[in-house]
Amino acid sequence: MENNTAMKDHKDIYLIVDDEPDMCWAFQNLLAQNKILSQNALNGQDALRLIQKVDFKAVFVDAKLPDIEGLDLAKKIRAIAPNLRLIMVSGYFYRDDPAIRKALEEGLLSDFVSKPFRNQEILSVLKSVE
């Protein structure tokens, strides 16, 4: 579920929250190719647990998780880590979706990437975070 890249390193580490193992596979490879460390969580509960333990640079959140809505998870994360950058990656919403616009305006989300994405889009988002 978690743990694929080194954890107790000085390097930045990112969290990917998606219930689709193949989606995590894609993220993991994309980031690894760019020498970026990442960890996966397949549900909201695991994500919250990891966030309490690890100081992530940013979190990629899917909109629909088996135990919680992505936007609700974002609110919970905000409550425990107010400055953590949250990027929603979703096939359920679209960029101008009212719910997404509102979340971006309110600062709940830092960014939104629609599925399917260009790998470069994810890398650009990472750059903006740095």
Binding site: E20, D22, M23, W25, A26, F27, N29, L30, Q33, A63, K64, V89, S90, G91, Y92, S114, K115, P116, F117, R118, N119
Partner: peptide, 18 residues
């Protein structure tokens, strides 16, 4: 349906780019 189709599409898309 949108969610469920765009997920495999996203995986395909990333893999193709690799």
């Amino acid at each position: 349906i949108a969610h469920e189709i765009r997920n495999p599409l996203a995986i395909c898309s990333s893999a193709a780019q690799f």
